[in-house]
Measured scan of single mutants.
Amino acid sequence: NNDALSPAIRRLLAEWNLDASAIKGTGVGGRLTREDVEKHLAKA
């Protein structure tokens, strides 16, 4: 759900053309954090 994404995370996902549903969020309530996105990018 994009409503739970911060503007910074939305921008990062758009910049790298990533799908938020493909990344497991570790923040409060399962929210994506910058670290989650960076770890996903490191694996790719």
Rank of each mutant, 00 (worst) to 15 (best):
L41M: 09
R10S: 08
K24E: 14
S6V: 05
L18M: 08
S6K: 04
A8M: 07
V37E: 01
P7M: 09
L12Q: 04
D3R: 09
K24T: 14
I9H: 02
S21V: 09
L41V: 10
S21R: 08
K39D: 09
T26D: 03
N1R: 12
A4E: 14
L32K: 01
A8G: 09
K39Y: 07
N17H: 11
R10F: 01
L18Y: 05
G29E: 10
G25P: 09
L5V: 10
L5G: 04
G25Q: 04
R10P: 01
E38G: 04
V28P: 15
A8L: 09
G25R: 05
A20P: 13
D36E: 01
A22T: 12
S6R: 03
K39R: 14
R34T: 11
T33S: 06
H40K: 04
K24Q: 14
R34E: 14
R31Y: 07
A42Y: 07
N1A: 14
T26R: 02
D36K: 01
L12I: 08
D36R: 00
H40I: 11
D36I: 02
E38P: 01
L12S: 00
A44K: 13
E15H: 10
L41S: 03
R31W: 06
A14Y: 11
T26M: 04
G27V: 02
P7V: 13
V28R: 09
D19M: 06
A8I: 11
L32G: 00
E35G: 09
K43V: 10
A14D: 15
T26P: 02
G30R: 03
T26N: 04
A42S: 10
V37D: 01
L32V: 12
L18A: 06
K43N: 12
G29P: 03
R11A: 15
N2L: 13
H40E: 07
L5Q: 08
V37P: 00
S21K: 10
R31F: 07
A20R: 02
N1Q: 12
L32I: 15
K24L: 12
N1H: 13
K39S: 10
A4M: 14
G25S: 07
L5S: 04
D3F: 02
E38Q: 09
E15N: 05
L12P: 00
D36C: 04
R31P: 04
L32R: 01
G25K: 05
A20Q: 07
I9V: 12
A42Q: 13
A4T: 13
H40D: 02
G30D: 05
L41T: 04
A22Q: 14
L13M: 04
G29N: 13
E35F: 07
T33F: 01
E35S: 09
G25T: 05
S6A: 09
L13V: 04
R10W: 02
R10N: 06
A14F: 11
D19Y: 03
A20Y: 07
E35H: 08
A4H: 14
A8P: 05
H40P: 00
N17G: 15
K43R: 12
T26F: 03
T33Q: 04
A44R: 12
L12M: 11
L13K: 00
D36S: 00
I9Y: 03
T33P: 01
G30W: 00
L18Q: 07
I9N: 01
V28F: 09
A44I: 15
V28G: 07
L13H: 00
L13N: 00
D36P: 01
G27P: 02
V28C: 12
I23L: 06
V28M: 09
R34G: 05
T33I: 05
A22W: 09
T26K: 02
G27N: 03
V37I: 14
L12H: 02
L13F: 02
N2E: 13
A8S: 12
L41A: 07
R10L: 08
L13Y: 00
A14P: 09
G25M: 04
H40L: 10
A44T: 14
H40N: 03
I9R: 00
R34I: 15
K24P: 11
R11Q: 14
G27Y: 00
K43D: 11
A44S: 14
E35W: 08
N17Q: 12
K24A: 11
P7G: 07
A8K: 06
A42L: 11
T26C: 05
A4G: 14
L18G: 08
K39P: 02
D19Q: 06
T33G: 03
R10Q: 14
L5K: 02
R11W: 08
N1I: 13
K43M: 14
K43A: 13
P7Q: 13
I23W: 01
G29Y: 01
D36V: 01
K43L: 12
E38M: 15
R34M: 15
A44M: 15
A42D: 09
L32M: 05
G27S: 04
E15K: 08
A4L: 14
R31T: 14
A42C: 14
R10T: 09
D3N: 11
N1M: 12
K24H: 10
N17R: 04
L5F: 07
E35P: 05
G30Q: 04
G29T: 04
N2G: 10
D3S: 10
E35K: 10
E15P: 00
A42G: 09
K24W: 05
A14L: 13
G29K: 06
V28S: 09
P7D: 15
K24N: 10
L5Y: 07
T26G: 03
L5P: 05
H40Y: 15
E15T: 04
G29F: 03
P7N: 11
A20K: 03
S21I: 07
R31D: 07
L12G: 00
T33R: 06
A4K: 13
K43I: 13
T33Y: 00
L18T: 07
A42K: 12
N2W: 05
D36H: 02
A14I: 11
R34Y: 15
V37T: 00
T33W: 00
K24S: 10
R11H: 12
D19F: 01
V28D: 12
L41K: 04
N17W: 06
R11F: 06
S21P: 04
A22D: 15
D19L: 08
A44N: 12
I9P: 00
A8Q: 10
K39A: 14
V28T: 10
D3K: 10
L13S: 00
S21W: 05
T33M: 05
P7S: 11
S6H: 08
E38Y: 15
A42T: 09
I23K: 01
G25I: 05
E35M: 11
R10K: 13
P7W: 03
S21N: 11
A8D: 15
E38T: 09
L13T: 01
E35I: 08
G27M: 03
L32F: 03
L41F: 07
A22S: 13
R34F: 15
A44W: 11
D3G: 11
L5T: 06
S21F: 06
L18P: 05
N17P: 06
R10I: 15
N2P: 11
L5W: 05
R31K: 13
I23Y: 00
A8T: 10
A42V: 11
S21M: 09
A22I: 11
G29Q: 08
A8C: 15
V28N: 09
E38F: 15
R10E: 12
N1S: 13
S6L: 07
N2T: 13
D3Q: 12
L18V: 14
K39N: 13
H40A: 15
G25E: 02
K24D: 09
K43P: 05
S21A: 12
I9F: 04
S21D: 11
A22R: 06
E38V: 14
A22H: 12
G27K: 02
E38N: 06
T33N: 03
A42P: 06
D36W: 02
G27R: 01
L13G: 00
N1V: 13
A14E: 15
N17L: 08
A22K: 11
R34P: 09
A8H: 09
N1F: 07
E15D: 15
N2A: 13
I23E: 01
P7T: 11
G25D: 03
L12K: 03
R34C: 14
D3P: 10
D36Q: 01
A20M: 08
D19G: 04
R31G: 08
A20I: 10
E35D: 10
N17I: 04
L41W: 07
L41N: 03
K39Q: 12
S6N: 07
L41I: 15
G30N: 05
V37Y: 02
N1Y: 05
A22N: 11
H40R: 03
N1E: 14
A44F: 13
R11N: 12
L12A: 04
N2Y: 07
V28K: 11
G29M: 08
R10A: 13
D19T: 06
K24F: 08
T33D: 02
A20S: 08
G30A: 04
R11I: 09
R34S: 09
R11E: 13
N1W: 04
D3L: 09
R34W: 15
R11V: 08
A4C: 13
L41D: 03
L32Q: 01
G25H: 07
D3T: 11
D36L: 02
G27F: 02
A14W: 12
L18K: 05
